[in-house]
């Protein structure tokens, strides 16, 4: 073989390259459905909203409902509890968030959040811990009256799901 022959692109090179390319695309097209089938299916997504009647909850009490397989805490806070949650300096918070940002304005007594510890997903116990809010028994995270992480391995405040007040007595989560 002389030099000029080596440099030219042959029909065979072209066929190799196109075959590999088409093969790789085809393989990807086959693998993706196999991976994506593991993501939440339509039946799971259909459970995306839950309506909760809150008319029976007294101030200072809370209820827990299941939304998308996860517990959601609905707590009706007393005025003292709200004041205490708002008296905390943002400097003392590992994940600084104002209490006002975690509730709907005008509905300050209602704290609606996922009852899932942001560490490894356990359900924290209410009215426990050093900050009168929640305490996670698994790895010892303490949350305050606004559901904000104060002490322990959890990195973030408990998550506020998307929710809205349908009327005075009903909350729609999701």
């Amino acid at each position: 073989m002389d030099k000029s022959e080596k440099k030219t692109t042959t029909r065979r090179d072209f066929l190799f390259t196109t075959s590999y390319t088409v093969g790789a695309v085809g393989l990807g097209a086959v693998i993706w459905p196999l991976i994506d089938q593991m993501n939440p299916d339509k039946a799971q997504k259909a459970l995306a909203t839950t309506e909760v009647d809150i008319s029976q909850i007294e101030p200072g009490k809370s209820i827990t409902v299941l939304w998308r397989g996860k517990p959601v805490f609905l707590k009706r806070r007393t005025q003292e509890e709200i004041l205490e949650a708002r008296s905390v300096s943002l400097k003392d918070l590992p994940h600084p968030e104002k209490d006002e940002e975690r509730v709907k304005s005008g509905k300050d007594e209602w704290l609606v959040m996922l009852g899932v510890c942001t560490h490894l997903g356990c359900v924290p116990l209410s009215n426990k811990g050093d900050y009168k809010g929640w305490f996670c028994p698994c790895h010892g995270s303490h949350y305050d009256l606004s559901g904000r992480i104060r002490k322990g391995p959890a990195p973030k405040n408990m998550e506020i799901p998307k929710y809205e007040f349908v009327d005075a007595n009903t909350i729609k989560i999701g």
Binding site: I35, M38, N39, P40, Q44, R68, G69, G121
Partner: peptide, 12 residues
């Protein structure tokens, strides 16, 4: 979520 096939550990 992909491992769960849901939004928490569940039937899937």
């Amino acid at each position: 979520t992909w491992l769960w096939g849901a939004y928490s550990v569940d039937n899937p």
